[in-house]
């Protein structure tokens, strides 16, 4: 009887160990680079955020980002003020988030170094508006480290960001957003 109990307990612990293995499939980066760029003949607009947070689960492919709007740095301080004040309304909507999935995560071999093309779909939320997006990117595995990179286009009007006619010629209809992350394994 005692033996049987021990056996069952050991078995249950074994299952819990599996939970631990799952836990180690999570990778994080607290200082992702998120930048966007707009080019028109009149003005180039570029802003960079180096403090975005991301978590990637290499087992399930789940991928998330959180980006503080006020942490975007512009070359021109007035542009930064207008970005926060007039366009993103960052007092009201301080954060942009992405919650989604690397749909082909199974093709990424964590044990083999190399560049793996990936497909990403998920929900981008900013300025109080959520929108499904899908894009492509790459995951670079080297020596157990994971780097990720992706580019996608964002239309301000999709997120209810109005661009007044006087500055329409200075801002592109679609802005290119570039995301770069260097993930480290998450251990409890």
């Amino acid at each position: 009887m005692q033996n049987k109990l021990f056996f069952v307990s050991a078995l249950s612990l074994f299952f819990l160990m599996q939970g631990n293995v799952n836990g180690q499939s999570k990778y994080y980066d607290k200082n992702c680079d998120v930048s966007f760029y707009s080019h028109t003949p009149i003005e180039d607009i570029e802003a960079k955020n180096t403090s975005a947070v991301s978590v990637l689960d290499v087992e399930s492919g789940a991928l998330e980002f959180a980006v503080l709007i006020k942490a975007f740095e512009f070359q021109k301080s007035l542009m930064q003020e207008h970005f926060n004040e007039n366009y993103m309304e960052s007092e009201k909507f301080p954060k942009a988030t992405f919650k989604g999935q690397v749909t082909n995560i199974s093709s990424v071999k964590m044990t083999t170094d190399g560049n793996y093309p990936i497909e990403i779909t998920g929900t981008l939320t900013m300025h109080g508006v959520s929108k499904e997006i899908s894009t492509t990117g790459t995951i670079k595995v080297s020596g157990g480290n994971i780097g990720g990179r992706s580019e996608f286009l964002v239309k301000p009007e999709d997120f209810n960001i109005a661009i007044p006619s006087v500055v329409k010629e200075k801002i592109e209809k679609e802005l290119k957003v570039t995301v770069e992350a260097n993930y480290s394994a998450y251990t409890n």
Binding site: Y28, V53, A66, K99, Y186
Partner: peptide, 11 residues
């Protein structure tokens, strides 16, 4: 959920 984890990382 990953969301809880991400919130913990935000400084």
């Amino acid at each position: 959920d990953l969301s809880a984890l991400i919130e913990g990382f935000e400084e």
